[in-house]
């Protein structure tokens, strides 16, 4: 809230760092349009760590690429919507303007640090390149800055490491280098697309701790994309649950975890293994992820939903604010319609 106040004092007209409004990104294939992202909206404020959760193929990564306008075109296309970043709609920007935003104001780190670094360029040089793409800093100073940021992301002997090639670094260290590259330009928003999926558990924990430290130390907001609910609970203050190209639940992490509203979220939480509850078998959600060329009519989750009624296959449920700031898109919370059938 205080941050919002500061902004309005500076005369800025917006409160949100990033506001996505009714974003639709489709992939046009021979079989028809794959509706990978189909009308999602959410906001990220300064200082937020926003979790975007969902199973594989639900449109999380496409959302990230849409923000950066890097959806492979063809076949992909942002069909409609707005991506308002610092008060300006990124979808209206020219390619050149986007280039000055990518890496400078919005950075991204990926799933696989093993393949995200150029194998034949020294890691220090790769950081220097990121700096010099967006500033005129001289190479000497940029190199010093690169070494400094490597130290900051927890790489010991940064001076030596900077001169090495990616294959000489361990997986965890490479992910630290990726984070260093993403943060060296002091972006407003860091998009982390499953940054720990390919790392082993101890290294995962270290990288997540690092992200948490970054959040505490810098102004950078984080959009954290994952399928791991445990990580979201630990790291994020807000989250959105995606299912088949749509957001089904959205709210503060605390309220979503203590009071999950959408049946999909409830089932997802039940599917998480827990140490404190003894169970023979983990719960699973019946059925498969729907075909995004011909998604189910009405609510996309209704074929797999244990509570589904006939009306669910007819009406697309709107986002309903059930608690303050906690939304779900399920007809159960539309009392009139739910009772009427």
């Amino acid at each position: 809230m205080t941050l919002d106040l500061e902004y309005s004092e500076k005369g800025m007209q917006h409160n949100h760092l990033l506001e996505i409004v009714d974003l639709k990104t489709y992939f046009f294939t021979k079989r028809g349009a794959v509706k990978a992202v189909d009308g999602i909206s959410f906001t990220i404020d300064a200082g937020d760590v926003f979790g975007l959760v969902g199973e594989s193929g639900c449109g999380k990564s496409v959302t990230a690429l849409s923000i950066l306008r890097l959806v492979p075109d063809p076949p992909g296309k942002i069909v409609s919507g707005q991506v308002i970043f610092e008060g300006e709609d990124l979808l209206q920007k020219s390619e050149e303007e986007m280039r000055s935003i990518r890496g400078a104001k919005i950075s991204m780190i990926f799933q696989d640090p093993l393949t995200s670094l150029d194998p034949i360029v020294r890691v220090g040089e790769q950081i220097v390149e990121a700096i010099r793409t967006h500033t005129n800093m001289n190479p000497q100073k940029a190199w010093e800055k690169a070494v400094k940021i490597l130290t900051e992301v927890g790489i010991p002997d940064a001076e030596i490491r900077a001169k090495q090639y990616p294959f000489q670094l361990s997986g965890g260290m490479r992910q630290r280098v990726m984070i260093a590259i993403a943060l060296v330009t002091e972006p407003r928003l860091l998009i982390a697309d499953e940054p720990t999926t390919n790392l082993d558990v101890t290294i995962q924990a270290q990288i997540l701790t690092l992200l948490k430290e970054i959040k505490a130390k810098t102004q950078t907001s984080i959009l954290f994309i994952t399928h791991n609910l445990g990580i979201v609970a630990w790291l994020c203050n807000k989250l959105a649950v995606m299912y088949a190209g749509k957001i089904v639940e959205y709210g503060a992490t605390k309220s979503v975890f203590s009071n999950p509203l959408h049946p999909y979220t409830t089932l997802l939480l039940k599917a998480v293994p827990r140490l404190d509850i003894k169970k023979e078998m983990l719960e699973s959600i019946e059925g498969d992820v729907p075909d995004l060329v011909n998604p189910p009519s009405g609510c996309r989750f209704h074929p797999r939903c244990p509570y589904a009624k006939k009306i669910c296959s007819i009406i697309q449920p709107p986002m309903i604010e059930v608690e303050e700031g906690h939304y779900a898109s399920c007809l159960i919370y539309d009392k009139e319609k739910w009772r009427s059938v």
């Binding site: 890097l70 280039r99 950075s107 990926f110």
Partner: peptide, 26 residues
């Protein structure tokens, strides 16, 4: 199609730069 080329694009590098400093040398 490799990740580090995508990564360079995400960092705001231009096509000419990506081609000259990442794609061709590799």
């Amino acid at each position: 199609g490799l990740d580090y080329v995508e990564a360079a694009r995400i960092m705001g590098a231009s096509n000419a730069r990506i081609l000259a400093s990442h794609v061709l040398p590799n």
